[in-house]
Structures are given as structure tokens and as C-alpha cells.
Simulated scan of single mutants.
Amino acid sequence: MGHDLNVERDAILAALKPVVHGIAATFGPVCDVVLHDYRHPERSVVAVAGAVTGRTVGGAMSEIGMRVLAGGDEASDELNYVSRTRNGTPVKSSTMVLRDSTGAVFGALCINVDVGAVTQVHDLLGALAGVGAAAPAELPTTTFGNDIDSVVDALVDAHRSRQRGSWAELDRAERVELFGGLDSRGVFAVRGAVEQVAARLGISRASAYNYLSRARAAHDTSTGGSA
């Protein structure tokens, strides 16, 4: 049965490859489209058209993909998600999960549109109409990386920067919260991520597993779920 499902999944991905190029051709250079196979998180990109996020075939999933992977079969589409790339480009993204005939999530089709040019035209028209430009909303930064390690590192740094200092300055509750935040973003769905996070924080692998366990226990207690 597993083999049959993999054949089915391969066929779905193959059928979507021309769709990737068709969507990108329709929208032009302000758009890129990426097809992911989440069976291989570290090299999930199986087709790409366009260059907004700099993805390449064989590249890793983004942090949006990690969230989908963490959601498992309960994952849902994320549509019109506005953020910035790490170089500051404002991007509107949609991630549509791919399911096989059993309902299992195994990949995603992602569309990313550079809305920077649209914003500039909007501001120009506002100026011509005599309407003052509104202050730009602060957008979250989304890491689109071809290297899974860079995506994990960026997420660790982002979560740590929202707290009050280095790992040594955090109390136990804040450390558990940091691991819980990373877990909710899907970081630990990636093979070897616990070891990588431990190295990034300068702690032992055993400590990292301990804090992850505590974070998951706290989440289960708060939601009434089971481990």
C-alpha cells in the first residue's frame, strides 16, 4: 500500500510541474511558484519557476513549509500570507497543501508574489491624489532558504531575539517557551534539528531534548491533549 501511495504521490507532483511554470508565466517576473515534496524536507523543492525567493530545485523547505510539516495531516492552506524576505522584499504568499487519496499531506504548491512594485505604485497614486502615504505595516520576516540549516538557524535567532537576552540570561520558563515556540513553527519536524538548535544555543543535546520535552508537556497540559 505504501508503495502504491508513493506512486500516486509521484504522479500528482509530475502533473503539477507544468502548472508551476504556467502560473509563473501568467504573472511574470513578480511571481515565483515552488512545488514541494515533503517526503524529503531537506531537499523538498522538486520544481520552481521565477526568482522572487531565490529557490532552486533540490532546495529545502521554508519556515512556512515547516509549519505545514508540523501540522501533519491536519495542516491547512495558508493563503495571502504577507511577509518580507530576509533581504526586505515584501511578498504575498499562498501555500496549498497536497494530499493523496487517503488525505495524507505529502507536499505543497507555493505561490510568492513580490508586492514591492505594487506598493510603490499605490504610494505614487496616493501622492498624486493628494493623500498622504500611510505608514507601512511592520511585516514579519519569512526565511526562504535552499539550505535547511539556514532556515532553522534563522528561526532560532528570531525566537531568541524576541526574548530578553542570551540563553544564559533566560529563566527556566523562558527557555521552555523558546523551545515551545520553535516546536510550534515545525523546526523539530526536520531531521537533526534538535542537535542543530542545541549547537546554536551553546547547550548540550541532552538539555535541548529536556527542554523540548518540557515544552511539549506544557502544551499538552494547556490543550488537554496527550503526548
Rank of each mutant, 00 (worst) to 15 (best):
G2N: 13
H3P: 07
R9I: 03
D10N: 12
A11I: 06
A11W: 08
I12Y: 09
V19W: 02
V19Q: 03
V20I: 10
T26W: 10
C31D: 09
D32S: 10
D32Y: 06
V33Q: 00
V33W: 01
L35N: 08
Y38V: 08
E42Y: 04
R43N: 05
V52W: 01
V52M: 02
T53G: 03
R55A: 12
V57T: 12
G59N: 11
M61F: 06
S62F: 06
S62V: 07
G65A: 12
G65F: 04
G65D: 12
G65M: 09
V68E: 00
G72S: 08
D73G: 08
E74Q: 11
L79I: 14
V82P: 00
T85Q: 11
R86F: 08
T89M: 11
S94F: 07
S94R: 08
S94L: 04
M96N: 05
R99E: 00
R99Q: 01
S101L: 09
T102G: 06
T102F: 10
G103W: 04
A104Q: 15
A104L: 08
C110R: 00
C110V: 08
C110I: 05
V113Y: 05
V113A: 02
V113C: 04
V113M: 07
D114Y: 08
D114C: 09
V115C: 10
V115P: 11
V115Q: 10
G116Y: 02
V118T: 15
T119S: 15
D123A: 14
D123F: 11
L124P: 06
L128E: 14
A129P: 07
A133N: 13
A133P: 12
A135E: 14
A135S: 13
A137K: 15
A137V: 11
P140W: 10
T142I: 11
F144C: 07
N146L: 07
D149Y: 05
V152A: 03
V152Y: 03
V152W: 01
L155A: 03
L155H: 00
V156S: 04
A158R: 13
S161D: 15
Q163R: 14
G165F: 11
G165S: 03
G165L: 02
R172H: 15
E174I: 08
R175A: 04
V176G: 02
E177F: 13
F179A: 03
G180Q: 01
G181S: 14
G181Y: 00
G181F: 02
D183T: 10
D183S: 15
R185L: 13
G186S: 10
A189V: 07
V194R: 03
V197M: 03
A198K: 04
R200M: 06
R205S: 08
S207Q: 13
A208N: 09
A208K: 00
A208T: 09
R214K: 13
R214S: 15
A215F: 10
A215C: 13
A217C: 03
A218C: 11
A218G: 05
H219N: 13
S226V: 15
A227D: 14
